[in-house]
Simulated assay, not measured.
Amino acid sequence: MRRDQRIFFPSLGLPEGDGSWQIEVHAWCFRLRARRFVIPIVRKALGFKHVRLTATEQQRFAERARWMFVDNKRGRSIVVDIDGRIYALGQTQANGHLRAQITVSLPPGRVAHECVVAPVWRDISGTDPIDIHFLAAEGLSIISDIDDTIRVSHVADRAALLRGTFVEPFAAVPRMAELYVAWARCGAQFHYVSATPWQLYVPIATFLDASGFPKGTFHLKDFRWRDRTFFNLFASADRYKRSHIESLLKRLPRRRFVLVGDSGQRDPEVFGDLCRRYPQQVRLIFVRDLTGSARISRYRAAFAGIDRRVWKVFTDPATLPTSLTDASI
């Protein structure tokens, strides 16, 4: 008999004005279906029914595609242990997800980063703590797109997008991981924002970790097959990214932000608008140009009224600064 599985996504711990901390918990409860049942359905839904795949490609497709048709579990209770105190957070929704916030007051001398937040499963605390990123009120945050910014995705090409997502090995944009590691050494915290559905969190997070990208919080998209096709999910990425980036800006008004994206969709326009609205927070914008020849007129329009030193279009990450200090931003 298959048992429920639970994933606790990397989340934020944010300081409150009274010295307490607001800890976010995002959980997903589901069961993986048998491959023999799922794979034919997904191949048909994604247009791979009549596509010949090698044995290696079939295996890779099976490993990734089965995440798209899991059996989400509604009504599962989620309980966590924070430094020895038990918190019942409620029950999962129809999509198997639960999002909750906990306000925790720490005893004198206790450092937030030392807090252990662990799931409790059937009255037994989980052995693996939840990855909570505690952010200081002030500091540097990198908000990074994933598709075609740090992972080669070909979002503008439907066939290439689907093959790259489900069939081909994931490929990192050269030298981006090294750049992000250098920024992390400067104290930067990372927030990965993408229209990739939460169902693909495990393969995407595994890939980023294997490629050497710094750990960070994830802000992906809720997705149900009944609502839209897989390709149309990516088509609405700009609206989704804007809302999640703006949410971070509003909740962290004293932090400085660097926005990193690409020209494949509307990152320049979204970033430019947010920079004009939050000029004290958005300090730098980096856009990876996918055309091979930067369309200067587009970027000038997207970043109209913004100091030219704030935004940069690049093709080679080696042209970007590896040190982000108070003086540089």
Rank of each mutant, 00 (worst) to 15 (best):
R66H: 12
M68S: 01
F69V: 03
F69M: 12
F69C: 11
D71V: 01
N72R: 06
N72P: 09
N72D: 08
K73H: 07
K73P: 01
K73T: 12
R74N: 06
R74Y: 03
R74A: 10
G75P: 04
G75W: 03
R76D: 02
S77Q: 11
S77F: 05
S77H: 13
S77K: 15
S77P: 06
I78P: 00
I78S: 01
I78R: 01
I78Y: 06
V79A: 12
V79T: 15
V79K: 11
V79G: 03
V80Q: 00
D81W: 10
D81H: 12
D81C: 08
I82T: 02
I82W: 04
I82S: 02
D83E: 15
G84N: 06
G84K: 10
G84E: 08
R85Y: 09
R85I: 15
R85F: 10
I86S: 03
I86M: 05
I86P: 00
A88N: 13
A88K: 14
A88P: 10
L89G: 06
L89E: 04
L89R: 07
L89W: 10
L89M: 02
G90W: 04
G90C: 11
G90Q: 04
G90E: 09
Q91P: 01
Q91D: 11
Q91I: 14
T92E: 04
T92M: 03
T92P: 01
T92N: 01
A94P: 03
A94H: 09
A94G: 04
G96K: 02
G96W: 05
G96A: 02
G96M: 05
H97D: 00
H97P: 04
R99M: 14
A100V: 05
A100H: 11
Q101M: 05
Q101L: 08
Q101F: 09
I102A: 03
I102Q: 07
T103K: 12
T103D: 08
T103Q: 11
T103L: 09
V104I: 14
V104Q: 12
S105R: 13
S105F: 02
L106H: 04
L106P: 05
P107A: 15
P107R: 15
P107M: 13
